[in-house]
Write a protein that binds this DNA or RNA. Structure first.
Length: 909
RNA sequence: GGGCGUUUAGCUCAGUUGGUUUAGAGCAUCUGCUUUACACGCAGAGGGUCGGGGGUUCAAGUCCCUCAACGCCCACCA
């Protein structure tokens, strides 16, 4: 073994070994064998590349998966990818554009074939990257949202929702992306603050063209779609005009002035133009007043014939032209600079147009109500809990979901229009049927509309999220009744980020409830957002991203995973810099070296390589009993913190770090080093027994430690397991119980052992502190005189002098009861006693005085504070007795300290 | 405009139901170490009164109010 742990050498090897062994498949063992534990991966886009968010998210899932697998659960981490309609279509379109080809040139079928080609060639990239991370997904069950099975689920859901009246087709004002030429759902529109203008325009009164009503707008080019001007009924300025008409400037068309609450007298001029086909608020106003919307724009965002001479101009040019003409005509009252939130498409970035179109919708209320109830009742819970509010706030308005997209890549809507032979064309009012297959559609059409008609399938595809919503059961074979569905649905924990609570989480919950009658998961763990070291979001455009694959190359997958886990405390976003991954790497190295150090001695002690089952524990050293107690505590802490819904990953990682580094390496190994490294060849039988025992305890601790560390650092722990000589893989071994001490029969003394060791370590601290203060080199052997307050404690210390000597370079150690301070000695306080280190020729009385005075001041300050607290009658009266008692004993021990320090100071002079 | 979050050592963060923490860790800094597992290491030291103000309480970093700064989400193109 090399003195530096080298992740590169082993990661690929182990990943392959696990896969070859089928270790990622759900199997289960031991008492939990028949209990399933299931996680479905948030399917990354096939176009995606692994970023730090994925790294965090998937590490969390892998930690849970490996933890539960070790506990013996029938564990499934279901992997897959998402077809990502717009994103994937765009990628392929861009590729075609390089050769000057448009998708329209190819036609739908050929284009879709191209996208499949692309998917088959590049779609595995992110999967391979997930493997680099160590993700223990059952890859034999890899699914894709456009697979035949999942597509069948999509059609099934569509048909059932339609039959239940929960899907309808209708003309509504929707969000239209002119660039992508498709409708979008509300959540797919992002408002971006942009500098713009607020124009006030004079509309001449029809009755008296010398008079005007001035309306304010940020979008003058939509005026050709105006159907009214609204004013507030309470607005004195305009009351008299209600019911009269105005003429739209530049046209001959007149429109009424109406009274509507939407007009806010405080905003602009208080008069608003109403354009129902191009504005969501106006759409509502139009409905209230029964006004027929006028569409003034084409789907490519150029103005149409309604705009007269501006017809054919794109919206932005038209805006400029209209404003210029209004100004020339003297109809522009004012222009104001203003920051305006502009709705933009989350994929293309183009400015979204509200547009009146025929689309497919999901009626949300009947689906949302049970989904809200599931969270309300706690059957699905969010971690951190506050995200339940985000979920609720989105679902509760019950806004219908526009699910049709005018794309080619996606699930084509299973609806067929029934075209009569005479007509041959599809119109808005063309009848249609909805069915699972074309044949079923034909049968239906025949029954309903007679035999003389042709069917044309709806060209629109479904929103990508429509298929993602079915992920927890479509991946398991639904609508068929498969064994995996029976075993693994509902799943357990969903790990995702807060950005897709609406897009995905909410929709999975209502879909699961609707079609399987059960919530798809009991816990939704919302991950932190990974930011750069300045606290900014990582993004391609900023170029501040950290590539996880680079980090794995540089520090190892284990190091990155561990660093992410230790940083991710509940709900707290993570500022990440490569420096932080160093601590993960250092930790791996620390563990590596501890094992590397002891391994040869294991062999030397027992005469065979590797760990053995006839380990010896007959006469355990205090340090042995102590580390085994600490091991049990650590097993308990890690187990509790990983158990859903606690999910305190950072606390678990922290406990592992502390135990490994501080207790196991810094204390235990140093104390037992001598016994471990003793030369077996020259040892007496007793000496050999002691060596065997020392290495046995070491091996026991390491074996359990790497097991509880395995979910966090799978590669290095598997490698260590092999180095220990175990043949079975760690990944499918058994999670330890916190009963090591019990099994070895040392449980009774655990509490006492922990206490004694802690006190002994404090004696070592006191010696080290004096050594540090006098800058004495580590090699300088110190004479230590320990003065204990009583005989029982003296006896214990006397019995464990070797522990002190193993951690500090000391010469003679004497342990007495209440001994006097030797001349020219430095003094230190220890539990139940004092400690003196003769430093003749080294001791500087002045420096020593400063040292002790500082400590004395602190202790006296504490005593003063405690006395004040305890002299407060209401404290003594109101506080619980054990608190008061605790405070009293704290005071007493500090008083003791003060006395001892005073004595030490007196001895100095 | 509405909601949520954050504000604790130079930096990045812990601190679970208010009381053995006049506040912990890692990094950084300083001092001393080629101590034969690890310099990706070992030992020691300095450094904060917990964003400001007010309140509740015997007791507040921890609860309430308020102000401020930063961040995120939602709404809003009149």
């Amino acid at each position: 073994m090399d003195s530096r742990y080298s992740p590169k050498d082993i990661e690929e090897k182990w990943y392959k070994t696990w896969q070859d062994a089928g270790a990622f498949k759900p199997q289960g063992h031991g008492p939990n064998k028949d209990k399933p534990f299931t996680i479905v991966i948030p399917p990354p886009n096939v176009t995606g590349a692994l970023h730090m968010g994925h790294a965090l998210n998937n590490t969390l899932q892998d930690v849970l998966t490996r933890f539960k697998r070790l506990q013996g659960y029938r564990t499934l981490w279901q992997p897959g990818t998402d077809h990502a309609g717009i994103a994937t279509q765009s990628v392929v379109e861009k590729q075609l554009a390089k050769d000057g080809v448009k998708r329209q040139d190819l036609g739908r079928e050929a284009f879709v074939a191209k996208v499949w080609e692309w998917k088959n060639e590049y779609g595995d990239r992110i999967v391979n990257q997930l493997m680099r991370l160590g993700s223990s997904c059952d890859w034999s069950r890899l699914r894709f949202t456009m697979d035949e099975g999942l597509s069948k689920a999509v059609r099934e859901v569509f048909v059932r929702l339609y039959e239940d009246g929960l899907i309808y087709r209708g003309t509504r004002l929707i969000n239209w992306c002119p660039k992508l030429q498709t409708a979008l759902a509300d959540e797919e529109v992002e408002n971006k603050e942009t500098k713009g203008h607020f124009w006030s325009i004079r509309y001449p009164l029809a009755g008296d063209p010398t008079q005007f009503i001035t309306v304010s707008t940020t979008r003058p080019e939509t005026m050709f779609g105006d159907v009214a001007v609204a004013v507030n009924a309470e607005d004195e300025r305009y009351k008299h005009l209600i019911g009269t008409e105005v003429r739209i400037p530049g046209t001959t068309r007149t429109i009424p002035i109406i009274a509507d609450e939407h007009a806010d007298p405080a905003k602009g001029t208080g008069a608003v133009k109403i354009t129902p086909a191009h504005d969501f608020n106006d759409y509502e106003v139009g409905k209230r007043h029964n006004l027929t919307p006028i569409i003034a724009m084409n789907l490519d965002a150029t103005l149409n014939h309604q705009a007269g001479k501006y017809a054919g101009m794109n919206r932005f040019d038209a805006r400029k032209a209209v404003v210029a003409d209004l100004e020339e005509a003297g109809l522009l009252a004012s222009v104001e600079d203003r920051v305006i939130p502009i709705p933009t498409c989350y994929r293309s970035g183009d400015v979204v147009e509200p547009y009146l179109l025929d689309q497919w919708f999901v009626n949300m209320k009947p689906l949302a109500v049970p989904a809200l109830e599931a969270v309300e009742a706690g059957r699905t819970r969010f971690v951190p809990a506050r995200y339940a509010k985000t979920y609720r706030d989105w679902l509760e308005p019950f806004k219908d979901w526009c699910i049709s997209r005018q794309l080619w890549w996606g699930h084509q809507i299973p609806a067929w229009y029934v075209i009569s032979e005479t007509d041959g064309k599809r119109r808005q009012d063309t009848p249609f049927v909805v069915a699972r297959t074309a044949e079923a559609a034909r049968a239906q059409a025949k029954a309903k509309y007679g035999a003389n008609s042709a069917l044309i399938q709806e060209e629109d595809v479904l929103d990508t999220w429509f298929s993602s919503a079915l992920w927890p059961f479509s991946t398991m074979g639904w609508p068929d009744k498969t064994p995996e569905l029976a075993t693994h649905y509902p799943t357990d924990v969903l790990v995702t980020d807060r950005g897709i609570i609406y897009f995905w989480v909410a929709r999975m919950v209502f879909s699961g409830l609707k079609f399987l009658g059960k919530e798809p998961f009991h816990t939704v763990y919302i991950t932190a957002t990974i930011l750069d070291e300045k606290g900014q979001r990582m993004s391609k455009s900023k170029g501040n991203g950290i590539d996880p694959i680079d980090m794995i190359e540089k520090y190892g997958a284990d190091a990155m995973r561990f660093a992410l886990m230790i940083m991710t405390t509940e709900g707290q976003d993570v500022k990440l810099s490569p420096v932080k991954l160093e601590s993960g790497r250092n930790f791996a190295n620390k563990l590596w070296n501890a094992v590397r150090f002891v391994l040869p001695h294991l062999e030397a002690a027992f005469g065979t390589a590797g760990i053995r089952d006839d380990l010896r524990y007959d006469d355990l050293h205090l340090a042995d009993r102590w580390i085994l107690s600490r091991l049990d505590e650590t097993i308990r802490t890690v187990t509790e913190n990983l158990e859903p819904p606690t999910l305190r990953f950072s606390d678990a990682a922290q406990a592992l770090y502390r135990f490994t580094w501080d207790d196991f390496c810094s204390s235990y190994l140093e104390i037992r080093k001598k016994a471990i490294t003793a030369d077996a060849a020259t040892l007496s039988p007793e000496g050999l027994a002691a060596k065997k025992q020392a290495v046995s305890v070491f091996a026991t601790v390491v074996e359990k430690l790497i097991t509880i560390l395995h979910p966090f650092m799978p590669f290095i722990t598997e490698e260590i397991r092999q180095a220990l000589g175990r043949e079975e893989l760690l990944i499918t071994s058994q999670w330890p119980s916190a009963d090591t001490c019990k099994q070895l029969g040392i449980e009774a003394s655990s509490a006492h052992d922990l206490e004694v060791m802690t006190k002994l370590l404090r004696i070592v601290d006191a010696i080290r502190s004096i050594r540090g203060d006098y800058a004495l080199p580590p090699a300088h052997a110190l004479e230590v005189r320990i003065s204990c307050d009583d005989e029982p404690w003296r006896k214990i210390v006397e019995g464990h002098k070797d522990i002190i000597a193993s951690l500090e370079k000391v010469g003679k150690i004497s342990v007495e009861v209440n001994s006097a301070k030797p001349a020219f000695s430095a003094a230190g306080l220890i539990p139940e006693g004092r400690l003196f280190i003769p430093l003749e020729g080294i001791l500087d009385p002045a420096q020593e005085k400063v040292r002790l005075t500082k400590e004395l001041d602190k202790a006296e300050g504490y005593v003063a504070a405690q006395e004040k607290k305890l002299s407060n009658e209401s404290f003594v009266k109101s506080a619980p007795a054990e608190v008061v008692e605790g405070e009293r004993s704290k005071l007493q021990s500090q008083k003791d300290k003060v006395e001892k320090l005073k004595a030490a100071l007196a001895d100095l002079s």
